[in-house]
Design a protein around this nucleic acid. Sequence first.
DNA 1: GTACCAGGATGTCCATGACAAAAGGGGTGT
DNA 2: ACACCCCTTTTGTCATGGACATCCTGGTAC
Lengths: 302, 302
Amino acid sequence: MESSGAALNISAVERETGLSKDVLRIWERRYGFPHPDRDDNAERQYAADEVAKLRAIKRLMDTGLRPGKLIRQSLDELNALAEQRVHPRRDAIAPAIERDVLTLLKAHDVAGLHGTLTNLLLRHGVQRFVVETVAPLNRAVGEAWMRGELQVFEEHLYTEQLQAALRSAISAFPRQPGPPRILLTTIPGEQHGIGLLMVDALISPEGVQCISLGTQTPFEDIRRAALAHKAHVVALSFSMAFPLRQIGEALASLRRALPPAVALWAGGEVTRRLRKSLPGVQLIPEIADALAALKSWRAESR
Amino acid sequence: MESSGAALNISAVERETGLSKDVLRIWERRYGFPHPDRDDNAERQYAADEVAKLRAIKRLMDTGLRPGKLIRQSLDELNALAEQRVHPRRDAIAPAIERDVLTLLKAHDVAGLHGTLTNLLLRHGVQRFVVETVAPLNRAVGEAWMRGELQVFEEHLYTEQLQAALRSAISAFPRQPGPPRILLTTIPGEQHGIGLLMVDALISPEGVQCISLGTQTPFEDIRRAALAHKAHVVALSFSMAFPLRQIGEALASLRRALPPAVALWAGGEVTRRLRKSLPGVQLIPEIADALAALKSWRAESR
DNA sequence: GTACCAGGATGTCCATGACAAAAGGGGTGT
DNA sequence: ACACCCCTTTTGTCATGGACATCCTGGTAC
């Protein structure tokens, strides 16, 4: 294992942790952590365990905690805290399905995972699959990852298999002409697209036309796309990792850029943490709320 | 159009153009461009046309040009240059299919695009579809985008529809047990996953087991995943936008981290621009080379 | 033609200062 | 209890300007 896998420079740490260079430097200045070695050229060289602790801190911050209280704790304490922070939400024992999937993931059983997801999808139908299976599974996987039970690559495998399942469900449904026509995408910087697929799979069966642009569409292009496709709704998805600060600003500026007749939906659990009220923006903190939003759109547009 | 849709601050420009804050600031210092206004707090406020020019410059840089020669040119000159830079490669008139797809894209005809891709896929089979249709189409779309004929959101729609087509093809093939077992992913920072899907679709029919982790797997996790899945090959994909500088370094360090028995493939057109020789790394500059690489792996491993 | 070297071009890193926005903590009125 | 407001602390982002490793280009020697 030699020198514990080569120290990382600051931009590598930025990529691995999601903490900007500015933040890494100012934490060092203010809190004394991290405290990387310097190479011959006086550049920071972060050790693997420092990066691990930074990742743990980032994880907890994404749930709403602040760095000042986290940064002095040891990695073990942080993991304990993560566990604490997760348990309260678990109202009962984790259902069998979630345990099964986590077991398959840890066993790296690709075929089993694929089979299980496909089975659930076919058994319950797309919509129940999304609301009752995928949403809780995402939570379970996210929590397991938070607790350090899952490796990053195991979580990637989950995402990939889930994506395959959702896409096959979506493509099985013939596209029916709207309305409403819904434009799905994420803003630049938000690279998680699973939320888009979930919405697509959930509401396509309702006879709406979902047009997905994938992730990270520049603002100006979201506007242009909405006009070009004559979209009735623009729906954005945000993940927990996305900087909360930017969400409000982004939604407000997009709201200004879009014609008032075009509805703007913002999905993702984080949207629950938004403080400012955003007139003209429909928040969708739970995936099931997308169906409600669709209903109310149809009611209003008559 | 008043203040042309609100000026962007430096981090917004970083997201929209892919140029880091450091680069934006030092260009301003060295070349005098961009030259953003300052707000009350002396922070840079980039106008929309500056951002457009920056995007044009970035586009051209991704093809190997250097900023010093680009930055003094006007947006029109840059677009002309992009056109020039594209044409030489076009040895004949663009085939009908490529023209058709571009027309559909510009007409925002989602159903037509989906139909055309599906039709081609079913008509020619997966492998021919990937090599003879998708690869030239990608090039055509990339070039049209470079010339400014395509908007970003139109290119996103293409990517999304293509992804749907490829995934449905892949999922239609039953996964057969390898060998080789091939781990597909990209390294952190590389967010384009189409290459992975193309490889998957191309070689899955050959009876290999492709395990895709999606994009941006941290180095350490690539190693762990290779071991956990007992992969025979680790295949990475690189797009033109990925900083060439980092590719060589990344491949070398990954080569060191992986057991010698595990082959390392690096795909994508950019790999042709690599200077250093990389022992133990198989380059795959053309998608069709993946089949050759597979053949030679099978020959050697006997 | 090829190999090699010097100088220019380019991106990344560093240190430090400043400040706006968000969050927390009280206190007060209903 | 709860809602509201104001003040303090916390936190992230931005700015400036200097340094330097690396890559590219072009010229020179063989």
